[in-house]
């Protein structure tokens, strides 16, 4: 069964006349490495905000584990329990003064008690290798550390599908490697990662499935090598960048 299914999603922002999403239908089974590519303004972020229930489609529907998402409080809590969202800039996600407290925010919102929340904090910290940072103030972290802590804050909710919007864009190669190691571990555990990126090496190299969005529509949704071929045929300048899996 699919973790999340999007069916014919339509959405337009009030201040932008053109539709941000125009009939997007996708399904996310467990245990996949999915990358999302497309130009700026193609609807990647809008799509991701729909996955987590931040935006509500004007037409179309979402199904979580086969059940329709109804957008009442219980349904949204359930959606956010299963679909985690990480944004590009970790500075906008870390609100608390200490790392441990920031990680506990999601689990407590799920209604877990303090000891369960502490266990989740520890688990997510170990997964993201931030155990040594738990007592540190969030403002004293490096860029890579902030990203891992932001990731841990979402993973503490144990989502089945992780939606990451340009998570690795501002990271150095070493920090990227650490983040990919975490994402790989998640996929090995049967979780699905949807990663939006402008880095074609990452899109076609790390992703096993690539979704190519164009003007709010799914241009292609296929195996990475097939999308890479089509993408390179249309964009000769990128031909050298479409690397095999690293």
């Amino acid at each position: 069964m699919c973790l999340l299914e999007l069916d014919n999603l339509h959405f337009a922002y009030p201040d932008h006349p053109q539709n941000a999403l125009r009939g997007v239908s996708l399904a996310f089974p467990p245990g996949q490495r999915v990358t999302l590519i497309g130009r700026n303004g193609s609807g990647k972020s809008t799509l991701m905000l729909h996955c987590n229930g931040i935006l509500r489609p004007q037409r179309g529907s979402l199904r979580l584990g086969g059940e329709p998402v109804t957008y009442n409080r219980a349904s949204l809590t359930n959606l956010r329990r299963h679909v985690g969202l990480v944004l590009q800039d970790p500075d906008n996600q870390l609100f608390s003064a200490s790392v441990a407290q920031d990680l506990s925010f999601g689990p407590l919102n799920l209604g877990l008690n303090a000891s369960e929340a502490r266990a989740r904090v520890q688990e997510a910290a170990e997964l993201c290798d931030v155990t040594n940072l738990l007592e540190r103030p969030t403002h004293a972290l490096s860029g890579g550390e902030k990203t891992r802590v932001a990731l841990a804050g979402v993973l503490a909710m144990r989502p089945g599908l992780l939606v990451a919007d340009e998570l690795i864009n501002a990271l150095d190669p070493w920090a990227r490697q650490q983040v990919f190691a975490i994402l790989d571990r998640l996929v090995q555990d049967g979780k699905t990662v949807l990663l939006a990126t402008h880095d074609m090496d990452v899109a076609f190299g790390w992703g096993e499935r690539v979704i190519w969005l164009e003007a709010g529509q799914v241009r292609m949704d296929n195996r990475a090598d097939e999308v890479a071929q089509a993408f390179a045929a249309e964009n000769p300048a990128f031909r050298g960048h479409v690397a095999p899996r690293f």
Binding site: R80, R81, S96, D102, S104, G106, L108, N109, A150
Partner: peptide
């Protein structure tokens, strides 16, 4: 957006130190 994504319900509830 990030807070809502983590189930924000109106209060920044975190574990006490």
């Amino acid at each position: 957006i990030a807070l809502e994504g983590r189930g924000f319900t109106g209060a920044l509830t975190v574990l006490p130190n």
